[in-house]
Structures are given as C-alpha cells and as structure tokens.
Design a protein around this nucleic acid. Structure first.
Lengths: 232, 232
DNA sequence: CTGAATGAGATTGTACATTATTTTTCGATC
DNA sequence: GATCGAAAAATAATGTACAATCTCATTCAG
C-alpha cells in the first residue's frame, strides 16, 4: 500500500451499513489509488479501515465475484489492473449491447419518455461540464431512462456495472472540448431518432456515442500515464 | 431448505481447497436444488456443509458479486431465480457477443486451429450425446478454441461465465433429436465458414447456433416445469 | 383493535486458532 | 569464501467460536 493513512468511519455518511468497506475498496481500485496487481492483505486493510478482518474478507470476495480482484488460494488477493485494455474490452461489449437495448426501446418509447430525456438533456447542457461528477451523474441518468425499462434485466445490470466503472475512471480526467460538443450533439441526435421511431438510426447513434466515449477515456488514460512517467 | 442432509467433505475430491463451499452452493443454485428466492441462512448452510460460518459468508459474497445471490443488508441472502427469463436474457447477450468474437477469430485462424476444431467435432460426433455431461464438456471445448485466443479477455470471461450457467442447466435435461442434428450441422457449417475465411458467414452461423441452443433450453425448462406441476 | 415492548432468530463484527506460504537463517558442499 | 539447500521463523490466509446488533414476529397493555 502506497500510504498507510487510516480511514475513519464517520457516522454522518453512509459509513454504517454493512458493505461500506466494499464500496471504499472498490472505489480505490477503480480510481487507481490502489495500484494494479497490488497485494491486498486483509490485515493491512482491516487496520486501514478500522475494522476487524471479516468485513474485509467478505468485501474482497464480492469484488472477486465482480472481477475487480483476483484471489489465489492461500495466497491472498490482488488488484486486477484497470487499464486501457480493460476499458477497451468493456467498450467493445457495450458497443454491442447498448445499440441492441436502444433498438428495443424505440418500440415502446412514449411521449413521457421523450420529455424526461429532454429534461435531463437540458440539465446537461445547462451544466455544460462545469462539474465533472455531476455531469457523470446526469449522463448516467440520461441513458438509464432508456435502459431501465428494458425487459432484459441481465443486460441492463451489465450496462450499469460497466457504466459505473467508466464513470469512476473518467471522473479522474477532464473532458476535451471536442468530446463535449460530440456528447451534446449525439444526445440530441438520439432523441430525434427516438422521436422518429427510427430504431436503426438510434442504434447507430448510440454505437458512435459509446465508441467515442471509450476512445476519449483511453486517450485521457494515455495522457495521464505519460504525465506520470515524465513528471515523477 | 428442502432437505437437511449433511454434505460430507471427502478428502479425495477437491473438497479441501478454500472455495469448495462456493462451488457447491453455486452448483446447487444453478441446478435448482436450491429453489428460486429461497433464503440462504449462514447457520443452516454451515451445518449442512460441516464448516463454520465464515466460509459460507465469503462464498455468499462471491456469489453476490457474480449475481447468483441477492443480499439485503441485515436481512441475509436469497437465491436469485434461474428461470427461463434469466436464460433468455443471457442468450440475448450471447447472440451479440459470440458472433462478434467469432468474426475476429476468422482474421487470425490458422490450420492448427481448424485441426483442433475438427478433432473435437469428431469426438462430439463419435460420442453422439451418449453422455450428456461429457457432451457438454466437449461442446464447451469446441467453442473455447475460438474464444480463448481472443484479445478481449473481458468478453471471453463473460462468455465463459454464461457458458457454465447454461451448461449446468442443460445438464438436467435431455437433448431433443432435432437439436442434436442441428448442433452437429451447425458446428460443421461453422468450421467450413472458418476455413473459407468468411467472417460474416461464420458470425451468422454462430448467432443461429446460440439462439437455437437457448430456445432448446427454455423449451426443456418449460416442459420440466409443467411436469413438476402435474406430477407432484 | 392498535401499538409498543419483548424475545427469538439471524446477520454482522471481533477475537483468536490453525494452516499454508514466504522469507530468513544457518550449515554443508563445492 | 561463495552458493545452494534445508530447516525454522515470520507473515498472512483460512477456519472456528463467540459477542453484538438488527429484524421480525409475538405478546400484552391501553
């Protein structure tokens, strides 16, 4: 572990429910505060989070199930690297899934859906990327309107899981100007296609949207990596 | 829990490694011996498997991460239903992913790959569904040849996870004659398309193959359900 | 009949014992 | 004197036992 600070459990926040340790470790992995392939010793983590070892062990098992951690028998847990390759892999899957989900949405979309999409989109444009975390939340909500109603819960969950990873990663980086423009434009285009009941067109827009988002994140990760190499 | 038999840990088998409890519970969920939505009490399970509660708790957390179990805070774990809907959802995702993986495979396939595929296919045809479990293993190996070499490890893992679920489910049911014929035919077709470097054709065959496999499993599940209703 | 108190049952957290692995030490051999 | 290897100590994972907390059902007073 790079630094050995102790994380306090403050009663005010959501630090009481079982599972708060899981949230923290997961966040530290995704946000790269825990380095790729770093060993995760239950003793260390327990001291760090001020708990006994059991909550740590259970959190690590859950993270293993989700693929964030690799555990070898009798040898403990390691951080699975969240690198450009990982993002590329996720994006490739999303490029397949999201258009498919969108296509079906066209067949059930109604006026209320459109209104909600336009409302969120208006918020996004009003915010104009001033607050990255908030933008991420809004953008998630935008797409969630489309995917939440889908009958395929498994696919929607998979999207959600991938979404959270990508959101956590991109929280670390600025959004380029060209990307900002593209996001706004593609969202508007998507709404238009949905209004026009154009399933193929909507799917195509989403595919571009996802791919562009992935490319942008990977680029930013590359920049950050080069900065880290030359900087320190 | 329907029956309260105690599962012995026999040293001969793989019953010693940490994680053997996980395997067992997972298997019992997929094979429907643990009923959908059934409560999973750590105390009961510990008694059943002859361990203390910790291994159970960790297994449940891992299963939660994988989506087989749902845990509510302070209310314990429940079996996520593995029903027709679940299978349909998985298949829909696989219909998207597997053709994409196959397409890429066409661009790197060599003679050795083809030979391996043909060898496994020969084994499958020789066995001719005489042993369902063995057929499942062979069929998995067949497709694994194609997916294992893919650069997108995340997609390959997803396929593997889905594959294991479907294999465990279909292990419970017989394979209809028409499905047997279709499996053999489609495998042969796939090999032909791969030989011909026909990416689109290969992808189309795989899409049909996956869809047919899903349809068959769902049908069998429906039959079994109706039998259970009238039978008992 | 409603609703708060109570108690059983189950989950979650803590402490410790056991077992496996890794590192270190020490001695034999080249 | 250096190096390789085996034994032993240290470190960490895994398993067991138990305490504390939460939930839910039941009971009993108003």
């Amino acid at each position: 572990m790079s630094d050995t600070e102790i994380i306090e459990r403050q009663p005010g926040e959501a630090f009481d429910q079982p599972g708060w340790v899981y949230e923290r470790i997961r966040d530290e992995i995704i946000s790269a505060r825990l380095l790729p392939n770093e060993r995760l010793k239950v003793g260390d983590l327990a001291a760090r989070y001020g708990t006994s070892t059991n909550p740590i062990r259970e959190a690590l098992q859950q993270l293993r199930g989700e693929g964030f951690v690799v555990i070898e028998p009798n040898r403990g847990a390691r951080v699975r690297p969240i690198d450009e390759t990982f993002v590329r892999d996720i994006i490739e899957i999303e490029v397949l899934i999201e258009p498919a989900l969108t296509k079906w949405f066209v067949s059930i979309v109604d006026d209320a859906d459109i209104e909600r999409l336009e409302a969120v989109q208006a918020e996004i444009e009003a915010l104009n990327f001033a607050d990255l975390a908030k933008h991420g939340a809004l953008d998630t909500r935008f797409h969630q309107i489309i995917y939440d109603r889908h009958y395929n819960r498994h696919a929607a969950e998979l999207w959600w899981k991938h979404r959270e990873i990508l959101r956590a990663i991109s929280r670390r980086f600025p959004t380029s100007l060209s990307r900002r423009v593209a996001v706004i434009r593609e969202h508007r285009e998507l709404i238009e296609r949905l209004k026009a009941q154009d399933a193929e067109g909507a799917a195509a827009v989403v595919a571009r949207h996802v791919e562009g988002s992935g490319r942008h994140i990977i680029e930013q990760m590359g920049v950050a990596k080069r900065m880290a190499q030359t900087g320190s």
